[in-house]
């Protein structure tokens, strides 16, 4: 009889184990997301300053992140630092470092482009009404920037969650790894477990990411 191998999920605490694995990757992404949003706001604002040194440094930083696959960055931090500096960074910490490094770049670029997308006459008309620079920022520029930025930032969050699946490749025991272990352990009793388990992991990611991207789409429509 061919089975879809879904039965293993209901054996013992397998489903709980999978969910716990999912939480491991989500935890990594959440920490990295928090760091990215916070630092991204600062760096993004810095990028709109007219300082050439800051511009050059952030430009190089952005280009590195844009070109290098996250996997390569993970390898560098996880394998490279041990070798070069003798640090022994734990896989989870390496992941947080890499995803933050990447997330800050992406977030700051979003912040920068939202800030510069506000046309100059928005500033000018606020000044013409006699508003101060602070007032202009608080009641004219930031609300408009916010509306452009939030949907894009939420979109970045789903990308970060999806990309955290890579941490399995440097040995973090997250949902995919747990899935592998479950399949391995039940090789005899349910040989088709790979189908059911990987399908479940696929759906789990979808359940996490889809509502978030729907939300971002909705906001984008509402605010555009």
């Amino acid at each position: 009889m061919t089975s879809l191998g879904l039965d293993v999920l209901f054996k013992g605490i397998n489903m709980q184990r999978l969910l716990a694995g999912l939480w491991v990757s989500l935890r990594i992404s959440l920490i990295a997301i928090a760091i990215s949003i916070f630092l991204g706001l600062v760096v993004g604002w810095l990028m709109t300053r007219k300082n050439i040194v800051i511009k050059a440094i952030t430009r190089v930083y952005l280009e590195i992140v844009r070109i290098m696959p996250q996997m390569v960055l993970l390898f560098i931090v996880f394998f490279g630092t041990t070798r070069l500096f003798g640090w022994n960074i734990d896989a989870e910490v390496s992941s947080v470092i890499v995803f933050s490094f990447w997330g800050v770049a992406e977030m700051s670029d979003l912040v920068r482009s939202s800030l510069i997308s506000i046309p100059k006459h928005q500033y000018e008309s606020a000044y013409a009404l006699g508003m101060s620079e602070v007032q202009t920022y608080l009641s004219v520029i930031i609300p408009q920037t916010f509306r452009r930025l939030v949907p894009l930032a939420i979109n970045l969050i789903t990308r970060m969650i999806k990309t955290t699946s890579l941490v399995m490749m440097i040995g973090v025991v997250e949902v995919l790894k747990v899935g592998q272990q479950i399949i391995e352990a039940n090789r005899k009793s349910s040989p088709n477990a790979a189908f059911g388990v990987y399908l479940t992991v696929f759906i789990l990611y979808f359940i996490v990411c889809w509502p978030i991207s729907m939300f971002s789409k909705k906001l984008e429509k509402k605010w555009s």
Partner: peptide, 24 residues
């Protein structure tokens, strides 16, 4: 489109490569 935009490539590959053979 929604399915593939909201799941990681790694998981998609695992499903295609290790999962699908189980159903032939």
């Amino acid at each position: 489109i929604e399915l593939f935009r909201n799941t990681p490539l790694l998981i998609q590959l695992f499903f295609l490569y290790f999962g699908l053979p189980k159903i032939g």
